[in-house]
Each structure stands twice: as C-alpha cells, then as structure tokens.
C-alpha cells in the first residue's frame, strides 16, 4: 500500500503531463512538436546505433575529463590558497574576476588560441568549471572551526594529515556545492563548444537536425541532453550522500534541537 502510494507520487505527474502532450498532438499536426510515439521511435532510430560511438561517447568523455580535471585543480589550488593568508589576499580579487566572466565567452577565445581540437573543448570545460570549485574550496578552508583546528594542532595533527583529516572534510560541504555548480556548467560548455566549433558531438548533431528541420530528431537530441543532465545529477547526489553523510546527519540533529 505504502509503495503503491509512493509510486503514485513518483509517476503521477509525469504520466499526466505525457497524456496532455499526447492529447494535444493527437488532433492537429504541430510542426514544432512531435507526438510522443514518433519521438520514442525517432529516439531509438537516431541514437541506438553508430551515433553512440561517433557523437555521444566522445562528448561524454570530454565532459568527464574536463570536469574531473577542474575539480582536482580547483580543490588542490583552493586548499593551497585558502591555507596561506597572504596568498589568498593576493589572488582573491583576480579570481573573483575570473569567476565573474561568463564561461561561454571562453569558447571563441580558446578557439583562437588553440584551434578547433578536442583539447580545446576539454580546456573550455576545465577553464569554466574550475572557478566554482576553487573559490568554494578557498572559502571552505578558511572557515575551518578554530576550536577544531586548535584540537588538531595540540594532538600534533599537522602537514598532510591535517589536510586529510581536518581541512578537506571540513571544507567538503562547500566543495560539493562548488562541484554541483561545476557539473551543470560543464554540460553547458560541452554543448556550446560543440555547437560553436565542431563537426561531431552531441551539440553539433542537435544543431544539424535543427538546421535541416528534422524536428523529431532535434527533440530526441534534446532528450539525450536531458538524460545526460539527469544522469549527472544522480551521480552527484550519490557521491554527495556518501561524502557528506555526517554533514546531513549533523544538520538534521541541529534542526531537530
């Protein structure tokens, strides 16, 4: 009974929305909106085939490499800058400026500097995704509780052990918030870099469909991007739940009190 109810909550609204869509496309042929059935058909046709290897997987690969490298550089740099007071004062305004530049403008810039290559696309993703992680890490490192920091000090927890057991865990809620922003930025940048300058990849394929007025195909591409976004969000939530279990538990206790 309980699971049935939960299933209802889970699927109720989506089913209703799809029904409305179905009913709306039933009568009139709308040029812009395919029927649910034709979309499903096209989706299978277009994406379950060679395209997976020529467009989808390379895009995902670049995205994964770009985001991961950005996270690593951001965290390492953030710990360094966050721990050294004068370095932070020196760099913070410059970094704030870089963070404020809308990352898509990096596409034409890097295209110019590096040409249209795979590396360029990865660098676009890295250089856009790095800022949220970097600045959030700096902020998180700076905000380590002084009492906790003193405790670690008196017990001789210094150097690498200090980073490993004190600084990183304590900054992890902020770092994860930065990672979340980076992941959605990364997806946006992946698409843009392919739309702007490419002859393959998801973004390129979708723009091709649109230019050739293959509307169901275009929609199916949008669905692929949507699924990719949802997939990334799941991965993130799973990682976050594991890394920040203590944090959520503590918050719950505090809120209950």
């Amino acid at each position: 009974m309980k699971t049935l109810k939960n299933l209802g909550y889970l699927l109720g609204l989506p089913v209703i929305l799809i029904l409305i869509w179905w009913a709306a496309t039933l009568e009139t042929e709308n040029f812009f909106v395919p029927t649910p059935a034709s979309l499903v058909e096209t989706f299978a046709e277009v994406w379950f085939g060679e395209r997976i290897f020529t467009d989808v997987l390379p895009s995902i690969g670049r995205l994964a490499v770009g985001v991961l490298v950005a996270i690593v550089i951001g965290v390492v740099g953030g710990v360094l800058i966050g721990s050294v007071r004068w370095l932070r004062a020196l760099l913070e305004p410059t970094l704030e400026f870089f963070r404020a530049i809308p990352p898509p403008v990096l596409v034409p810039v890097l295209m110019l500097l590096m040409g249209i290559t795979d590396t360029m696309k990865v660098v676009v993703i890295i250089s856009g995704c790095i800022w949220p992680v970097l600045l959030n890490t700096i902020e998180g490192v700076r905000a380590v509780d002084p009492v906790l920091s003193d405790s670690a000090h008196t017990y001789g927890v210094d150097g690498w052990a200090r980073v490993r057991y004190l600084v990183l865990p304590s900054a992890s809620p902020q770092i994860m918030a930065g990672v979340r922003q980076s992941m959605s930025l990364g997806l946006i940048l992946m698409v843009i870099s392919e739309m702007f300058a490419s002859s393959s990849g998801l973004g390129f394929a979708i723009v091709q469909f649109q230019r050739s007025f293959s509307i169901p195909e275009m929609w199916s591409g949008i669905v692929v991007l949507g699924l990719l976004g949802v997939g990334m969000s799941f991965i993130f939530q799973w990682a976050e739940r594991n890394i920040l279990r203590w944090y959520h538990g503590q918050k719950e206790v505090e809120n209950a009190a």
Partner: peptide, 30 residues
C-alpha cells in the same frame, strides 16, 4: 607532543565527520 588539551567548546573540538572511535584514535594513528 606530550600535552593534551580538552577545550571549553567540546562539541566543536570533535571531528563531526568521524565516528567516536576514529576521533579517539586519530592522534595515535597520526
């Protein structure tokens, strides 16, 4: 090295991301 301090703000002196045992163990492990 041979000095231990128990702070006034005890709640904040424990690592919230470590279990009780790990908290006690950390200085020794280190």
């Amino acid at each position: 090295k041979k000095m231990a301090v128990v702070f006034q703000e005890y709640g904040r002196s424990l690592f919230p991301w470590m279990r009780v045992r790990d908290n006690v163990e950390l200085p020794l492990k280190n």
